[in-house]
Amino acid sequence: MMQPAKRIIFGTLLVGLLTGCDSMFTEPPANDPESIFENLWTTFNEEYAPFEERNVNWQEVYRKYRPKVNSNTTDGELFKILSAMLEILNDGHVSLTAPNRDIFYSNKIKRDLVDNGLFNVSVLKSYLEHGYKEGAENSFIYGKIKNENLAYIYFDHVGQNFFKLSDFLNDYPDVLGYIIDLRHNQGGDFTYCLSEMGRLTDQKRLVFKSKTKNGKGEQDYDAWYEWYIYPKDNYVNKPIVVLTDRYTLSAGERTVMVLRSLPNVQILGDTTNGAHGTMIGRELANGWFYSLVPQKVKLSDNKSYEGVGLAPDIYIKNKQSGINMGIDDTLERAVEILR
């Protein structure tokens, strides 16, 4: 074969062999208990936004938990230590996932399923007239309340199911009022609530603002970004009662923020979870995953309710005994308000 061709072949193969040499990459965290602890703590330190809102001194957390980890710490022990550290944040967006283990949720309500039984989809369906509509896996449920001139809709998350809101409003144009149930709403993509709530407003309204970390420093953030709802299609101006509970989370809470901005809306139920920022995932050298929040959120009153939640206008909480008998006190109260 010709000399130039041989040289070129050799050169190309040499380039190929050199590609992917480890030394060219940023050194990743090592796969040992102490390095894993340091990696997780440091990532939170650099990327997690709402320490202040959650009253957590992350340096203090390091001083308390770092001594518990050494080179002999087992996987089980490390999982417990990291979980204990994340538990302090009590954040509905923070979790830790490891092989053959139950996900650890930082937020106590999510973790221990506190009062989870006070909301029951079968019970709320019993309040609806025959012929109500529902999506796959209860993504939405809507219909008319039995013996009342009121219409009800439930969303279990925030996504494409929100397209059903317009159908719902079109199906029941002549009712006295609407109940929008966001209890146990697990969140999702809040842009759907902004795009689909347009029929409920006759003017542009500021609903919340947010800013995201853009560097490792404590004050490294983008500028505040304001989010609005805009009027869309046929305006619907009827009294609305929104139902919330401690499991109304994330994009579910952003939906509550949107609805709170409307003058014809009352919020009924229990305070929401208080997990407002966006959530991102991270991975550890041992293959475990965790999630954190890189964003701060404030409402139109310029206050943050991260870690606090959005309080209802009227507080009411179901009783387990009532639910067991098929009674949803919160829903019944909403009916009374609108009747």
Binding site: F190, Y192, S210, G215, D222, P294
Partner: peptide
Amino acid sequence: SPYLVNDDEFIENIGSH
């Protein structure tokens, strides 16, 4: 992608669905 995976501009882009 933005510095920390998503930011408000990124989310706004999704908003067209």
